[in-house]
């Protein structure tokens, strides 16, 4: 996406830094990059490997004026951060990028090994002559994407795609298996999954809405919500704390699951919670409205006790 570079350069006239992506020669994919000067911005890219949600950096840069290249889903996280007051609207300049759907680079790495170039110069997925159906390697969240265009932005880049987003996929693999499990089987399932958690907290650090970070209650010794021992029950409790604190706040960007180095399917929990929140409160995080657990007004309560 050639036209991105001049837009970033222009943005740099009014902001301190622009968050975007640059190609990593080692990884063969785009990685987050911070552009401070127009010269640095020459390295900017936008292709199907820009899965990272750069909104994660905004609360850490709250004292700066920041430009950010945002996909539709990233913009929802930015909107959520603004709605919650973690980021000021005037402090961000959003460069809305039209998103073609991001691919799961782990799938490419599984087939071709880490570090093989995944996208060609035109930003199209191309892996060593082998063709892989694009739909097969799309990230789960990109299937049935509800927001290909950013909800907030100051300038847009790229043509809005004329193609409809890939339709929601039939739950496959782990999702299919999970849906069919009994409650007792799920209890065992989570115990198995969390037995490999190492508590690196990449899920938390990669989450744009996990704004407490350094002072996260999971790592507090008092009151000790989760024990320090890295075993399945304690790690499970640690994750439940995170999930619970994201109730009505998670925008479903899937970063926790992407960041998890041991492949725990965290989105099974968050997707479920997001669905329940939408059903109960008619609320989907990432719009202009404040989250339901932040805004309860007793005078306008419409709760149906019999529901």
């Amino acid at each position: 996406m050639e036209e991105l570079i001049p837009i970033i350069k222009k943005a740099l006239e009014q902001v301190d830094v622009v968050l975007g992506w640059a190609q990593s020669p080692a990884a063969g994919v785009a990685v987050p990059a911070f552009f401070h000067t127009p010269a640095e911005a020459d390295a900017a890219v936008f292709d199907s490997t820009c899965a990272h949600n750069l909104a994660v950096y905004l609360p850490r840069l709250a004292d700066k004026k920041v430009g950010i290249v945002a996909k539709g889903c990233d913009a929802r996280s930015i909107a959520q951060l603004i709605a919650e007051g973690a980021v000021k609207r005037s402090g961000v300049f959003v460069i809305g990028a039209s998103c073609p759907g991001m691919i799961d680079v782990k799938k490419a790495w599984r087939c071709f090994g880490f570090g093989k170039q995944v996208c060609d110069a035109a930003g199209k997925v191309a892996m060593e002559g082998k063709t892989v159906a694009r739909e097969e390697i799309l990230l789960w969240k990109c299937r049935g994407c509800r927001d290909p265009e950013p909800v907030i932005c100051d300038v847009t880049v790229g043509e809005a795609s004329s193609e409809a987003p890939a339709p929601p996929a039939e739950p496959a693999g782990i999702r299919k298996r999970f849906a069919a499990m009994t409650v007792a089987e799920r209890r065992q399932f989570w115990q198995d999954q969390f037995s490999r958690c190492i508590r690196c907290y990449a899920c938390r650090e990669a989450c744009p809405l996990c704004v407490c970070r350094d002072v996260c209650t999971i790592q507090a010794h008092e009151p000790g919500w989760a024990g320090a021992a890295v075993d399945s029950p304690q790690s499970w409790m640690a994750q439940l704390i995170r999930v619970n604190h994201l109730a009505g706040r998670c925008t479903g960007c899937e970063e926790c699951e992407r960041a998890c180095p041991v492949g725990i399917p965290l989105m099974l929990l968050l997707e479920e919670q997001n669905d329940v929140v939408e059903e109960l409160f008619g609320y989907r995080a990432g719009g202009e409205a404040k989250p339901p657990f932040l805004t309860f007004d007793i005078k306008n309560d419409t709760w149906d006790e019999e529901r």
Binding site: V31, P32, V56, Y57, I198, C200, R204, E205, R213, P261
Partner: peptide
Amino acid sequence: RRTAEGCLSCGYCSYA
């Protein structure tokens, strides 16, 4: 600061 600016400060690199 420039070097670490993309770092999310998680513990994966240490644990791995």
